[in-house]
Each structure stands twice: as C-alpha cells, then as structure tokens.
Design a protein around this nucleic acid. Structure first.
Length: 730
DNA sequence: CTTCGTGCTAATTCT
DNA sequence: TAGCACGAAG
C-alpha cells in the first residue's frame, strides 16, 4: 500500500489520489508521468474503486501499453488479465471485432495499412479515370483521412464539397469506402471512425461501455485528435472520471490532426476539472533542461510552465559542425565509441528528423561493427518479403481482400500480369464478388480459361491453408506456407547479399509467430493477424539489448536515454523547409526539437552538416533552433575541414540539367557561421601544423578575417582565418 | 501478354 | 535518391 504512494512528490501524490471527476495532469518532460499513471491505475484497483475491467487506460503505442500493464502487475503483485490498457486503435479494434456486424461489417474484417490503402486509392483513381498527377493518391488519402478524423463520412463530405477538386475528392472518397467494404477491410482511420459511429448510433453498445468503464485515463493527450476526443466523450456517458495527461510543449502530431485545443481547453470542456502540474524534472541535467527550455520559450502558442530540477549543472551541450552527412555519422559514431565505457550502447540514441537520414549512420555503425537497431525507417512489417507473406495470410483469412489478392496473385511469378488482373477485376465487379472468387473459378470464365493453368496453383495454396487456419497453430502454418511458396530459395537466388537478409526476416517472422502461439495458447491465424496489423514500428524496439538505437524524433516520444545525439540541425531539414513559412508548423518543429532534447538524461549532442545531399541541393545553414540555445550552455566543436568558406546556395529546383550549374555569387553568398562569433579574442584554437594557440587579436571580417594567434612553443602568428583549418577548443 | 530496362518525377513526421 | 510509369523486347 505505502509502496504505491511512496516516493512521490506532492503534486504526483495528488495526481495519483485524485480519482473522481475530470483531471488534467500537465506533465512536463521527465516529470515522472509514467510513474504517476501506473500508480494511479494501481491505486484505483487497490482501493477497490474499480475492478480491472472497469478501467481503461489509453497509451500512445502498444509497447507503452505493455509496459504499463507490466508495471501495474508488479505494483500489485498479481497478474491482472482483464485490465484494459491499449492504444486508441487497438481499443477500437476490440470494440469492432465484437460489434461491427451492427454496421454491416463482418467482425473478421481485415485492417489495411498505409500501403494497402494507397494501392486501393490508386485503383480508385484509375477506375474513375482521373489524372494521377492532378489527383495524387497520397494527397487524396490525406484529405480523406482528415475528413475521417473529424467524423465526416463520404456523404457529409460530398454535401459540403464545393468546386471541381473537392467534388472529385468526394467521388473518390465514396468509391474508396465502397471498395473497402467490398474487401471487408478498414483502414486505420476507419477503426476510429467506425467505433465512434457505432457508439454514437447504437445506444445499446454505447450503454454497455458506459456502464462498464468507470475510469478512463489517457496518456499523451496533447496528441489526440477530434475523433479520439469524441470517442472519449461517448465512452464516458454520464460520469466524468476522465484523467488526461499531457504537455502542450510536446504536441508533435498536428499534421495528423492532433488538436492541441483538446488539452488547452480541457477546463472549459469539462467543467470542474482539477488541474495538476508536474514541473519537477527527474530526468535531465540542469544544462539540458535549460537548453531545451530556452528553445521552447520561443514558441508563442503555449501556456508556459517552468520545469525545474535539483540536478544542477551537468556537461555542456556539445555542438558538432561537420562538412557532410558522412562526416556527421563518423563523428557521432566516434563519440559513441569514445564514451562506451561510461555509457552503454543501450543508453544511446541517434535521433533525426527524417527516416532517410538513418542511412549514413547505419553504414558507419556497420563499418565500425557497433551493434545498432533502427526503429522505423522501413518497419519490419512493411518489408517486401514480409508483406508478400502477409498478403497470403490475409487472403487466407479474408478471401474478399482484393488488395492482398492483387499483391500476391503473381508472387511468386507465375505469368499473371496487368492484363489478366484487369480481366479478373472486371469480371469480379460484374458478378459482384471478390476477385479471388473469380480466380478460383477461372475455368468457368471463357476469358480466363486459357490462364487457368497458371492461376490454379495459386488458388490451390490458398484453399489448402483456408482449411487449416482454424486448427493449426499459426507458426506451423506460416512455416509450411514459406516452404510451399519456395520463398527461401527464391530470395537467395534473386540476390546473394540482400537475399540472406530477407531470409533472416522471414525466419524472424516465423519466430515471432511461434512466440505468439506459445504465449497465447490456441493462437490461430486470425487472431494473430489482427494483433500484428496494429504493431507500430516502435513495437519492435527492445531496450534490453546492448545496441545503439536510431529513430526519428517522433518515435522517441516517451523514451529516455543517457546520451542523445540530435542530428541534421540545418535549416530546411530541421525545421523542414515547408514549415518555416507557417508559424504554427514552425512551432511544431520547435516542439519536436524540445521533445528530442528532453529525451536526454546526461549528454546532449547536436550536429550540423554544412552540406547535405538533398536531391541536388548542397549548402545548408545552421538551424535556428541551435542558435536559440544560449551560448554559455554550448561546447562547440568545429570539425569542418575547409575552414570558413562562403558557400553558394542553389535554389533547390534550379536548372534541371545533367550539368550542375554553379550560380555565380554574390547574391547567393552567405557565411554558414559568423566567423566573428566563433573566433573571438581569448578563444583557444587548434591549428593542424602549429598546434594549440590562443587568439590575441583579430582584424578584418568575413573572408578577410585575419587572426593573431599565440601558439605555445612557437610564438605569435598572423593567420588568414579563411585558409587556416582551425578547430575551436575552448 | 509479361518482363525487363530506362527515364522521369517527387521527396516528412505515424496509427 | 528511389520508386514508379512507360516503352521495347521476349
């Protein structure tokens, strides 16, 4: 009992013991949020305020959910099975698996991931004969996704649509939903949309949840969107025991429809809400906290809070200036190796703005034989070989899944191309049945009978496993399927090097299935598929192995590391180019920086490359966020080899020609870093031939800056800053 | 009708 | 840089 309430500060204790009514916990970075949430959940159960099944806790990732369950279990000393700890999405799946038939959906519906949705959308665009440049599939999906996250269905969208483009989008939306339904599938947004729709329109279902769920807790509330907000409203019903935890400074999903107003207006939304602020930071050093706070202080759209820590001081924030992405990787990896004795690899993370940046690091880490794990980039379940295999599994479970059908009908290659596929699709539409059904009876269709010999082996496999799917454990089934498809030989034959990696992936997949089968007793295919379709790329992150982690800053939310390397701090990359003109988006980028920086307990390192290959563009300028960190907190290491040369900035889309055109200065000339700022009198520098020296004087500026430097053992030298390869030491 | 090769264009962040 | 669409060969 006292274990539950012990070791909590005053605010945390209050948050844990305030159980009734709406409660907003403003939890700054590293303020012990997870501890509060788990204790509060345990407290509700220990105090017998609720049975385990009467509490719902919503977390951001499945992994976080699993961890929370584990921690509560440890606190209570007993395993609580019926405890609802899940993500919004997986909670909705559970609701729909039970009652989707009330929406005329089968309860064994398939969940389409982003790639599936994209394929389907492309099909729709083609079907309606729209130009795919005027209507790019991704853009259309964005619009539809936005609509869904506001609970705007196809009819409502069509009614509100004005103008040519919106009307076309409405048509696409309608067709897209029709096709989804025909595939007996839902996309990610549908999970929320349909669950809310169900609760809204079916009072019987709504009542069931409202009566059952007496307490609801939501983590990362700043990143909830409107439909999630509605879901909560519908689940609450007549009581208002809603506890939300969030931090407006860590809201980084605005682009996905996250509505920061949910948290900013919580008090007006839920009258009588208690607000508790957790402002003591237990994670980071004073230096890191001050650096992060200074940057976020530049945001105007915030309530403002003051995080404090008793851990004063700490190492300065290291700033590395390098020439290129490759040098950035070399430098950071060097640094990691140098610190390996104090900081184990598990406690180190390299964070970046875009997944594409992971590559340089991956190469360097591999060269140095440093174990690492990349979270995200191409999520395990998005890899081609896994998706192909999953395509089979999905079609076995759901023969109406035309998208999976389309994916695997010619994998492995069996001479069925676009034409045949189109024929099948046409026949299917005419008959109003799934494509697979046509394929299965291809001999009855004269147009296809010539192809039957090619199609038949395919349908035979599907049929074979359809018979087994409810009786054989999932891992054995997958194992056999891999053998039947001759996947291993195929992949190895295709590519010696890459092939092996793919085979490894398949083996990992089978191992994962086996593990699932072991831990879930009678685990069969359907259940397994449903589970993994909601895996996020974070869910394969393991913090036990001794490996450096690499991930985007978005993925790092909620995690902490002893050492954090924040890479690619350049204007145009972080913040991203298209955000700088929109104050709101720029502020979101700044929050992203804040999230990244506050992941660090002890060491924070920033890096800036003065040139980076981003489709042609070369030169780059230091990110404004770096400049917002107060000088006295920063230890600068200029590792650039060329010294301070002015660089010419090319417009990203200058001449498209085989020859890169050099645009003559001076209009585009700028200094990446003000030499004056770096090379002040009194600074200690290192010269490649003269060694260490102290700057005694300076004259001129810019390119003609000349320095008078006292080198130990050599004497005073006058040097052109432009040519000397000086390194700042102190 | 399929497959393979070339040239073009677009290029975040995640469930 | 990579993924995709289109065109030529098998």
């Amino acid at each position: 009992m006292s274990r539950l309430l012990g070791e909590l500060n005053e605010a945390q204790l209050e948050a844990v013991t305030t159980t009734e009514g709406p409660l907003l916990i403003i939890a700054g970075a590293g303020s012990g949020k997870t501890r509060v949430l788990t204790r509060r959940l345990a407290h509700l159960l220990v105090q017998r305020l609720a049975n385990p099944y009467q509490v719902l806790a919503v977390t951001f990732t499945n992994k976080a959910a699993g961890e929370m369950k584990e921690r509560v279990t440890r606190l209570l000393g007993s395993d609580i099975q019926q405890m609802n700890v899940s993500t919004f999405h997986s909670f909705c799946v559970r609701v729909l698996r039970r009652d989707a038939n009330r929406l005329d959906y089968q309860t064994n519906f398939t969940i389409f991931d982003q790639v599936d949705s994209l394929t389907l959308m492309k099909n729709c665009i083609k079907e309606l004969g729209f130009s795919d440049t005027q209507f790019p599939a991704k853009g259309q999906l964005r619009k539809i996704s936005d609509a869904k996250s506001k609970l705007v269905g196809p009819e409502a969208f069509a009614t509100a649509a004005g103008g040519y483009f919106e009307t076309r989008t409405a048509e696409l939306y309608t067709l897209y939903q029709e096709r989804l339904r025909a595939c007996c599938a839902m996309d990610f947004d549908d999970l929320l949309f349909n669950a809310v729709w169900l609760l809204k329109s079916d009072s019987e279902v709504a009542a069931r949840y409202q009566e059952r769920l007496r307490y609801i807790m939501v983590d990362e509330y700043q990143d909830t969107n409107h439909i999630q907000y509605l879901l909560l409203k519908h689940l609450l019903g007549d009581h208002d025991n809603l506890c939300v935890v969030g931090d407006e400074d860590q809201s980084i999903y605005g682009w996905r429809g996250a509505d920061i107003r949910n948290i900013l207006e919580f008090e007006t939304d839920y009258p009588g809400a208690r607000i508790i602020k957790l402002e003591q930071n237990y994670r980071s050093t004073g230096v890191i906290l001050e650096a992060a706070s200074s940057v976020i202080g530049n945001n105007e759209m915030r309530k403002g809070k003051k995080l404090w820590t008793t851990v004063e001081g700490g190492d300065k924030v290291k700033l590395f200036l390098v020439d290129s992405a490759a040098d950035e990787a070399t430098t950071i990896v060097e640094q990691i190796v140098a610190c390996q004795s104090e900081t184990p690899l598990t406690d180190v993370v390299i964070l970046y703005r875009t997944n594409a940046q992971s590559r340089a690091f991956e190469e360097q880490l591999r060269r140095e034989s440093i174990p690492y794990q990349i979270i995200g980039s191409v999520s395990f379940y998005q890899r081609k070989e896994i998706k192909d295999l999953l395509g089979y599994l999905k079609l076995i479970v759901n023969p109406a899944d035309d998208i999976s059908f389309q994916r695997i009908i010619n994998y492995p290659k069996r001479g069925i191309g676009q034409m045949t596929l189109a024929q099948i699709a046409t026949l299917a539409r005419q008959a109003g049945v799934p494509a697979y059904e046509i394929a299965r009876q291809s001999e009855t269709h004269p147009e296809l009978s010539a192809k039957t010999k090619r199609i038949e082996p395919f349908t035979a496999i599907i049929e074979k496993y359809r018979e087994q799917k409810d009786t054989r454990p999932v891992d054995l089934l997958v194992q056999d399927l891999v053998t039947d498809l001759k996947m291993i030989d195929d992949l190895l034959a295709e590519d010696r090097v890459l092939g092996q990696a793919r085979v490894d992936n398949i083996e990992a997949f089978i191992e994962g299935a086996a593990e699932y089968a072991r831990s879930h007793g009678e685990a069969h295919l359907e259940e397994y598929l449903s589970e993994i379709s909601l895996f996020t790329n974070l869910d394969d992150y393991k913090d036990v192995e001794d490996k450096v982690s690499l991930m985007t800053i978005h993925s790092a939310k909620g995690l902490e590391f002893s050492s954090v390397y924040l890479a690619g701090l350049e204007e145009g990359l972080f913040p991203l180019q298209r955000t700088v003109t929109e104050p709101e988006q720029l502020e979101e980028e700044r929050r992203l920086f804040y999230v990244g920086a506050t992941r660090a307990r002890k060491n924070l390192c920033l890096s800036v490359a003065s040139s980076r290959h981003r489709f042609g563009e070369v030169a780059s300028v230091m990110s404004r966020f770096v400049k917002e960190v107060p000088d006295h907190l920063v230890e600068k290491h200029d590792l650039r080899k060329q010294g301070y040369r002015p660089t010419v900035s090319h417009p990203a889309h200058s001449q498209v020609g085989s020859q890169a055109q050099i645009i003559p200065a001076p209009s585009g000339v700028h200094y990446e870093y003000e030499p004056e700022e770096l090379l002040r009198v009194g600074r200690v520098v290192e010269h490649p031939t003269f060694g260490r020296g102290k700057i005694l004087g300076a004259e001129g500026f810019g390119e003609s800056l000349r320095l008078e430097i006292m080198f130990s053992g050599i004497g005073v030298k006058k040097i052109m800053a432009k040519y000397a390869k000086l390194k700042i030491i102190g």
